[in-house]
């Protein structure tokens, strides 16, 4: 029993029977179908799959940003499903961090205010030491007083990562965080995400379509047709490509 409890505690995210269907009748499309998933703590986990495989929907469901048609999700020991408005807001603001592909920074706020926004939304006092550590790690000290539209994509995404980490969430979800960035900026952002896992013990779940991006993770979940199609541990770009090729072979 103690072992099972320890295993459960070591999981950042757990899903059972997770299902999401769009449309009805003959037009129904199963984006996520009866998925069981265990994501360990303290590592960067990449979710990969072909376009339309349902990986973004999966991460949205895991992060509590969308409602599942069936199944349950736990973040550590916190159950996501069936929560009220306040509990859901608390979960999104304190337990989970989210990095969007399009950054989703509030344009009229400075970078500093954007980073601190989740704390304000949730009435959490600011931890100056933690704030300084994040700023230092992400190298955004000079950008703090600037507005998002005055920054490059890479800078904006680093601000978004700081915003996701500022509440010390149990897990950070990132939806194609490098999708709008060039190669150099992508490498920087991915390094920062990995750094957050290694140095801060942060759990990160990242959706990506890039084998190179996936190789920054410790674990890769291959997703196809709304189901988990495989796992890759300690991935390299080549092993990820091979996994994807295998998926393509299955699809063919």
């Amino acid at each position: 029993m103690k072992k099972k409890a320890a295993e459960a505690a070591a999981l950042a995210v757990k899903a059972r029977g997770l299902t999401k269907i769009y449309g009805e009748g003959e037009a129904a499309v199963t984006a996520v179908g009866h998925v069981d998933l265990d994501i360990p703590q303290g590592i960067l986990t990449a979710v990969m799959g072909p376009s339309g495989s349902g990986k973004t929907t999966l991460v949205h469901l895991l992060a509590g940003l969308d409602k599942a048609d069936a199944g349950e999700v736990w973040i550590r020991d916190q159950k996501l499903t069936g929560l009220g408005d306040r509990e859901t807001a608390h979960l999104r603001g304190r337990i989970i961090g989210f990095v969007f592909q399009g950054f989703n920074l509030l344009q009229t706020m400075s970078a500093r205010d954007n980073i601190l926004l989740p704390l304000r939304l949730n009435g959490v006092p600011r931890d100056d030491a933690w704030f300084d550590e994040l700023i230092s790690m992400l190298g955004i000290g000079r950008e703090l007083s600037r507005r998002p539209y005055e920054m490059s994509g890479g800078q904006q995404q680093r601000i978004a990562i700081a915003r996701a980490l500022i509440t010390k969430p149990h897990v950070v979800f990132a939806d194609e965080p490098t999708g709008n960035l060039d190669t150099h900026a992508s490498a920087e952002v991915l390094s920062h995400l990995r750094q957050a896992c290694r140095e801060l013990g942060q759990s990160v779940v990242m959706v990506t379509h890039s084998p190179i991006a996936a190789s920054y993770g410790s674990n890769v979940i291959l997703f196809a047709d709304g189901k988990v199609a495989g796992h890759i541990t300690n991935p390299t770009p080549d092993s990820v490509l091979a996994g994807l090729d295998a998926l393509a072979g299955v699809e063919r």
């Binding site: 992060a63 940003l65 408005d85 306040r86 807001a89 608390h90 979960l91 999104r92 603001g93 304190r94 989210f98 969007f100 989703n104 509030l106 926004l117 989740p118 939304l121 949730n122 915003r163 509440t167």
Partner: peptide, 10 residues
């Protein structure tokens, strides 16, 4: 949508 994702209540 963004604010709700960051924890703003309704």
């Amino acid at each position: 949508g963004t604010l709700a994702a960051l924890g703003a209540t309704t």
